[in-house]
């Protein structure tokens, strides 16, 4: 309940944060909302020697309309994302997933950037962003670059962020009109991480699936897109039969964990059920 001692720096700007990361090297950790890092530090499962507090960089807390996409600053709190009319209008899936994180107190503090940088495959927003093909904007020593969500999550709690990189924003494409979505989170208690979560987008053209995107939470070492389900759906009628057939592909390419709440076998079975339900809910 008491973290190991560390040095504390306050970043005055994004550039300053990058500079501090450069000065302190691998032992430094960025502190935003702190809701991924501090729980680990309290149990001394993480013990960074330096914390660089970026919580004061208020210019990174915003949700704005940027034409074909909505841009979310990395320090935007989950509660603000969950409540955003702009997101609800253009990409409700992201707001929904943010509203599924933790509990109200957690959502008041946890940031979207912190959630993504943590790279937890059991977390809800990363899968939602992966499913909508979001782009992540990263500031590093070499300047700014963008990383597609599909290339961001590299392994269990690992991401494409380098030791001196700072995630600054997320670009969420606006969904085409008529695109249905759903996020199905299966858990035992409302505050728990997903045993399995499924994010689904279904874009229809006259009763036919024009494009489907399906993402899986907690089914592998990273958030996962379900290519098998997506390809099985393309061009098929948006029908219960087609969804059920496609959902049978959900376990393909997964590598689910086993823990005290669910075995890998159960997660595998759930993934198909929840994919089917997510697809049905997306077009309902």
């Amino acid at each position: 309940m008491i973290p190991a001692a560390f040095d504390y720096e306050v970043a005055e700007s994004t550039d300053h944060a990058v500079q501090l990361l450069g000065e302190h090297g691998d032992d430094a950790k960025l502190l935003a909302g702190g809701h991924s890092l501090l729980p680990l530090m309290k149990l001394r499962l993480a013990r960074p020697s330096v914390l660089i507090d970026i919580g004061g960089l208020s210019d990174l807390a915003y949700i704005k309309d940027a034409g074909d996409h909505v841009e979310i600053g990395a320090l935007t709190r989950m509660c603000d994302i969950a409540a955003s009319d702009l997101l609800r209008r253009h990409c409700g899936l992201i707001a929904e997933a943010a509203g599924q994180v933790g509990d109200p107190q957690v959502r008041h503090r946890a940031t979207i950037g912190g959630s993504l940088a943590h790279g937890d495959p059991a977390s809800d927003p990363p899968v939602a962003l992966l499913t909508v093909d979001a782009e992540l904007v990263v500031r590093g020593p070499g300047g700014e670059r963008t990383v597609p969500a599909s290339g961001f999550f590299t392994n269990f709690f690992e991401t494409a962020l380098g030791p001196q990189d700072l995630l600054t924003s997320v670009r969420v494409p606006k969904l085409a009109a008529g695109t249905g979505w759903s996020y199905q989170k299966f858990h035992r208690r409302a505050i728990d991480w997903a045993i399995v979560g499924v994010a689904a987008l279904v874009e229809r053209d006259d009763g036919t699936v024009k494009r489907a995107a399906v993402g899986l939470t907690n089914m592998a070492t990273t958030p996962l897109r379900s290519a098998g389900v997506e390809s099985a759906l393309a061009g098929r009628p948006a029908s219960a039969e087609a969804f059920a057939e496609a959902a049978a592909h959900a376990p393909e390419g997964t590598n689910p964990p086993s823990d005290t709440n669910a075995s890998a076998e159960y997660r595998t079975a759930l993934s198909s059920i929840l994919v089917r339900r997510a697809l049905e809910a997306a077009v309902a």
Partner: peptide
């Protein structure tokens, strides 16, 4: 583990778990 909420206080009017914030924050 930031679960039980016994430590909830308001930060700028919003509920937060005071066990999951540093005083410096």
């Amino acid at each position: 583990t930031s679960t039980c909420g016994s430590c909830t206080v308001l930060l700028d009017g919003q509920s937060v778990k005071s066990c999951t914030m540093l005083a410096v924050q």
